[in-house]
Amino acid sequence: MSQVLIREVFPVAAGAYETAGEASAAIKRKLKQLGVDSGVLRRVSVASYEVELNLVIHSMGGTLTLTVDPQQVTLCSKDVGPGIPDIDKAMTEGYSTANEEARSLGFGAGMGLPNMKRNASTFEIQSQAGVGTSITMGFRLDGK
């Protein structure tokens, strides 16, 4: 096991549009303080913001967990439902089930999940309809 430098859990409430992004902003500040490379930092920030928005827009509430070890930053999102019935469809750019409120704020264009995958070094998603979704993303600190 690698040495864990930071492990922090951020709760994210369903439908909390006003505060959406606060966890990601806090994560960005922490990683900046640690001296994480600016390119890696931006990729983590984009993926973090996307996954946090997904928790706000689509889930019934969940958590975003940040773990940092000397090799990588890991972001893990877990929610308590409703789950994604068809992950392949959800991973398609442009496919979205976001509501009007999310769209009026400039989100819900169906770019979130593919954009997370593109920015992360490793991306795993598991979901069960009626149970919940978990997403784990790794970002290597050497940028690979």
Binding site: E18, A20, G21, S24, A25, K28, S38, R42, S45, V46, S48, Y49, L105, G106, F107
Partner: peptide
């Protein structure tokens, strides 16, 4: 042309 707090938040995330 979109005016809300998320524009600033998005800008923050992307530098």
């Amino acid at each position: 042309g979109l005016v809300n707090a998320h524009v600033v938040r998005t800008a923050e995330m992307l530098d």
